[in-house]
Amino acid sequence: MEPIIEVKNLRKVYRMGKEKIVALNHIDLEIEKGEICCLFGTSGSGKSTLLNMLAGLEKPTKGTIKIKKIRVEKLNETQLAIFRQKNIGFVFQSYNLIPTLTALENVALPLVFQGMDKKEREKRAKEMLEAVGLGSRLHHKPKEMSGGQQQRVSIARAFVNRPQILFADEPTGNLDTHTTIEVMDMITAIAEKYKQTLIIVSHDPEIADYAHKIITVQDGDVLKIEKNTDKGRKMIYEKEE
């Protein structure tokens, strides 16, 4: 199967005065369509930097990033914005909801940028909120909801335009254990239902175990790639020396 994401010789170096900090060091990576992947590693390992590169939020110092055969690192800001609207959804640890908008309005917002008329986008947003168990909270604002409910709104917003690729950056970092399980079950079930590619950043082994593929990042390098077999067993099929 041809990869939906292909990374070659990816390198990111930050300059702080005269000092160079290597955040990513010659990363090679392929992610297939419909695959659930976890970028796994401790704080400072480079996993969030890698996610930002894949999402086009930062430019690499060197290397190529192809998503659906498009060289993402070559796109300008306007082209990137259009590409993300059509292809990518985001789930953040901090929810990033607009506090003055209701759940329905927050979820419908990405559809505004696609030019969808109000009736259709509200219908789509309502369906998505019902799918994440918030059908009774359509007109509640973020401050009127728990952390778990706010993250469900964030998930509904990410999935509402059926993007082919979902990026989730520590999506359960602010949630308790019970809510974490609910949210992870929800994200992965929706992604699998619609054959979407899901890339999760996490430092939690239990979150990583939801993935088909676990990409362990350490000191800016891919340390190993593991493929999850059934019942959470992992089989290492690639390892960089």
Rank of each mutant, 00 (worst) to 15 (best):
A158T: 03
L198E: 01
H212Q: 14
N106K: 05
L109E: 14
T64Y: 00
M145S: 02
I236R: 15
Q196M: 15
K74F: 01
N96W: 05
D204V: 06
S48N: 11
Y194F: 14
L166N: 00
K20S: 14
Q114D: 12
A108P: 03
I27Q: 02
Y210G: 01
V153R: 05
E77V: 07
I4W: 02
I187P: 02
N161K: 15
K74Y: 03
I181A: 13
S136C: 08
K66Y: 13
V183K: 02
E19L: 11
N9M: 08
K224Q: 13
Q218S: 12
I4L: 14
A156Q: 01
N96Q: 15
G41S: 07
L129A: 06
I187K: 01
A23M: 04
V153P: 00
A168K: 00
G89P: 03
V22T: 15
P3Q: 07
K62D: 15
N9T: 09
I215W: 08
A131R: 15
M53E: 11
L97D: 03
K74N: 12
L111T: 01
I207R: 00
S146W: 13
D117R: 12
T78D: 14
M53S: 14
G133E: 03
I82M: 11
L54P: 02
M128G: 05
K126M: 11
I225S: 04
I5A: 00
I199F: 10
T102W: 02
S43N: 13
P110V: 10
I67Y: 03
T100W: 04
E127A: 14
D28P: 04
R157F: 05
V112I: 15
M128K: 06
V153Y: 02
K213Y: 00
K59Q: 08
E30F: 08
E77W: 06
L24R: 02
M128E: 06
